[in-house]
Nucleic acid binder design. Structure first.
Lengths: 139, 139
DNA sequence: ATTGTTGCAAACTATTTGCAAGGCG
DNA sequence: CGCCTTGCAAATAGTTTGCAACAAT
């Protein structure tokens, strides 16, 4: 059983606020890899006074705590994922949605790269691009 | 033998200007994957009156003509590569340099993904992160 | 009570756009 | 000559920062 976000925040000396809980839970509850703006709009009805700056500041903390990973799938804005395991993503060039790619084994590929590069590797991001099933039907 | 950039521009109805040639040649002459700003500064001594907007406009055309590919290696700005073959890149988290990863076979991995996703695949980008040899020594 | 956090507005950075002057074909 | 392109400046979009009021510990 993992520690809850409340405990983790307190342990690292961050204060526990409703905004932080809401932002983390919004991220943890979805697989849609929302941007800061998307999180902001989603929480707008519940926290009408919350500002976009707070979303960014909170995400900054969650990044430091390794509770979210940042995606940069070739758009103008960043997206965030509460699943911090490294896994490939795919973006629909038509509607912009970003999905996880599941059941793919990237370890062979990573090992191959690790053996060939003189860099000391610390991480990687794999982005695929295409057209999602829904957009293929819209033809 | 490939057609030269001059011919390609003319064929597609674009005018051939010294700025366009310089920008493309700056990109083709390096493996450092420069940003728009870096190209701008590199050409500054030779074309002191050229503006950053021209760099962006020219890159836009080169993209359309498939003469450059765009990299988004998790920075705040885009980088460009005159090598339009899909190939993995690696970025040094210490100094920011972006290198090509050579001699890596990504096709097995891509085929695996193509077989598992319901998306119609059109492309992909692989980014690795680490510390380059030079920065490892700086320790 | 202390210290960190919020929310607003302003600052900032990368990129794009409008438009008059200039250059290619 | 006509139309595309340049270069400047202003606009835009995403993100960050400064600061006073506020809330968590």
């Amino acid at each position: 059983m993992e520690k809850c976000i409340t405990t983790l925040l307190r342990e690292q000396g961050f204060k526990v606020t409703p905004q932080r809980l809401a932002i983390y839970q919004a991220l943890a509850a979805t697989k849609s890899h929302p941007s800061a703006e998307m999180i902001f709009h989603e929480l707008q009805p519940v926290y009408p006074t919350m500002s976009l700056a707070t979303v960014y500041k909170t995400i900054e903390i969650l990044k430091e705590m390794n509770l979210v990973q940042v995606l940069n799938a070739g758009e103008d804005s960043f997206r965030y994922d509460a699943n911090t395991e490294s896994h490939p993503h795919i973006r629909c060039l038509s509607c912009g949605r970003v999905d996880d790619l599941e059941g793919v084994d990237e370890s062979v590929f990573i090992d191959q790269v690790a053996g060939k590069t003189p860099y000391r590797l610390t991480g990687q991001q794999f982005y695929f691009y295409g057209v999602c099933p829904a957009c293929q039907q819209k033809t």
